[in-house]
Computed example of a mutant assay.
Amino acid sequence: MTFNTKYPFLDTTNDYTPINDIQIVTPNDAADLPNGPCKALIFMGAGTIKLTTPAGTTVTLTVSANWFGVTYIRANRIWATGTTIAASSIAACY
């Protein structure tokens, strides 16, 4: 476990640390998320999202208003093809 005495919550090796950063996602068919696998996603719009998990599974999910807010789904990649949610309506949490 990494422990930072200045800010101990920067340990991102387990599920019990809080979210430290949020980045708006730009879906991309050729590249993974720039900051590595995220801890969760925030949806601020309805539609579909195609993503690849850290385990390598690629799925397309339908997101409704019930999902708006933080959803604890880890993702390595958010695909442009198959994602209909506006890019500014998806954020990755680290």
Rank of each mutant, 00 (worst) to 15 (best):
M1H: 10
M1Q: 13
T2Y: 15
T2I: 15
T5R: 14
K6R: 12
Y7R: 13
P8R: 10
F9R: 07
F9M: 09
F9P: 07
L10S: 14
D11M: 12
D11Y: 06
T12Y: 11
T13M: 06
T13Q: 08
D15K: 14
D15W: 12
Y16G: 09
Y16C: 06
Y16H: 09
Y16S: 09
T17W: 03
P18Y: 02
P18E: 05
P18F: 01
I19L: 08
I19F: 02
D21W: 14
D21A: 13
I22P: 02
I22H: 04
I22L: 09
I22W: 05
Q23W: 11
Q23M: 10
I24G: 05
I24N: 09
I24F: 10
V25N: 03
T26M: 03
P27E: 01
P27S: 01
P27I: 01
P27H: 02
P27F: 01
D29Q: 07
A31D: 14
A31W: 02
A31E: 14
D32C: 00
D32N: 05
D32H: 00
P34G: 07
P34L: 08
N35E: 12
N35C: 06
N35T: 12
N35A: 14
N35I: 07
G36P: 01
C38D: 07
C38L: 06
K39D: 10
K39Q: 09
A40S: 08
L41I: 12
L41Y: 05
I42P: 00
I42H: 00
M44H: 06
M44Q: 11
A46W: 12
A46I: 14
A46C: 12
G47I: 15
G47S: 15
G47E: 13
T48N: 05
I49R: 01
I49E: 00
I49Q: 00
I49N: 00
K50V: 07
K50G: 03
K50E: 06
T52R: 07
T52L: 04
T53F: 05
P54F: 02
P54W: 03
P54A: 01
A55K: 02
A55Q: 01
A55L: 02
A55V: 01
T57Q: 08
T58G: 01
V59R: 04
V59K: 05
V59D: 04
V59P: 00
T60I: 06
T60N: 05
L61R: 09
L61P: 03
T62S: 12
V63C: 12
V63T: 10
S64T: 15
A65D: 11
N66F: 10
W67I: 07
W67H: 13
F68C: 10
G69L: 15
G69I: 13
T71V: 14
T71G: 08
T71C: 14
Y72E: 12
Y72G: 03
Y72Q: 08
Y72D: 11
R74E: 14
R74A: 14
R74K: 15
A75K: 00
N76R: 13
N76T: 15
N76Y: 07
R77E: 06
R77F: 04
I78Q: 00
I78C: 00
A80P: 05
T81A: 15
T81G: 09
G82Q: 03
T83A: 05
T83D: 04
T84Y: 14
I85V: 15
A86E: 09
A86F: 04
A87R: 02
S88P: 02
S88C: 08
I90E: 04
A92M: 03
A92V: 05
Y94D: 13
Y94Q: 13
Y94I: 11
Y94P: 10
Y94W: 15
